[in-house]
Computed example of a mutant assay.
Amino acid sequence: MKKHRDILVIEDDEDDREILEEIFRDLGYKNNIIFFSDSTEALTYLRQPEITPFIIISDINMPKLGGFELRNIILEEEILRDKDIPYIFVSNAHDESSVKQANKLKVQGYIQKGSDYAKYKDKIKGIVDYWKENIHSFSSKGIKKQG
């Protein structure tokens, strides 16, 4: 089932990765959570035909390849676009310009990182639970069955 496939988290900040790792551990989802500190490595991973994650959670401001640029590549490359993976931005940036840019890139969510652990955890839970219940078209190519 699609809801048990991998969740990709692309976050260059080690402290933010650790917080998200703790949140996912606390939430107890059966999905494998795969962390990337470098968005170019995440892109290489996503280009593998057999890789079709459940969801991508991505920071915006990252070195080498920012979240906006990564999302744009996913939309431009047919092999990536056809995987139809929900893409969620998680960022400290919440200015109008960033939100507008994210909307132009047809993301499925944009949440602000939180300093309040419980609220941040609730935001992540809300996003993941929504996509677990949402009827969404996913390519059947390359789906790995996971328990």
Rank of each mutant, 00 (worst) to 15 (best):
Q146R: 15
M62T: 02
I51G: 00
Q108W: 10
G142V: 10
I51K: 09
D59N: 11
T44I: 12
K30M: 13
D16K: 11
F36N: 06
E21M: 13
I55Q: 07
S115F: 10
I60Y: 06
E69H: 06
G109K: 10
N32Q: 14
K125A: 13
F138G: 01
F24Y: 11
S58N: 04
I57F: 03
N61M: 04
K121Y: 06
N103G: 03
I57C: 12
E76V: 06
R81C: 04
N103Y: 10
I135V: 15
R81D: 03
I23S: 01
D122I: 07
L70Q: 09
P49H: 02
I7H: 07
G142C: 05
R47A: 00
I56Y: 00
Q146Y: 14
W131I: 06
D95A: 03
V9Q: 02
L8F: 13
P49W: 01
F54V: 11
I33K: 03
E18Q: 14
Q101K: 15
S58A: 11
D12T: 10
L105Q: 11
L65E: 07
K83W: 07
K83N: 09
N31C: 01
K100C: 01
E21W: 13
N32S: 12
L8A: 07
P49T: 01
I10P: 01
P49M: 04
G66A: 04
G126S: 15
N103F: 08
R17N: 12
H136N: 07
Q146T: 15
F36R: 07
V9I: 15
I73Q: 02
Y130D: 08
S98G: 00
S139Y: 02
D122L: 11
E69M: 05
R25Y: 14
D82P: 00
K123H: 11
K113G: 06
L65S: 05
M62E: 04
V9K: 02
K83D: 06
K64I: 09
L46P: 05
Y87R: 01
D129R: 12
I56K: 00
Q48M: 08
F24T: 01
E78S: 13
I127Q: 08
V9P: 01
R25A: 11
G28V: 10
Y117I: 01
N31P: 02
K104M: 14
Y117V: 01
P53I: 10
E22T: 14
S91K: 02
L80D: 07
E77H: 05
S137I: 15
H136D: 05
I143N: 06
L65I: 06
A93V: 02
K132P: 05
E22G: 05
Y110P: 08
R71W: 03
F68R: 03
E133R: 13
Y87F: 15
I23C: 02
E133A: 12
R25L: 12
Q112A: 04
K113A: 07
K100L: 12
I85M: 04
Y130R: 11
L65P: 09
R25Q: 12
G147E: 10
A102H: 07
I124C: 08
Y29S: 02
K83I: 09
D26M: 09
L65H: 04
Y29C: 00
I55V: 14
P53E: 12
K104R: 15
I56R: 01
G142F: 05
Y29W: 05
I19C: 12
F35E: 03
E78G: 00
I127G: 07
F138I: 08
M1A: 13
L8K: 02
Y117D: 00
L70K: 05
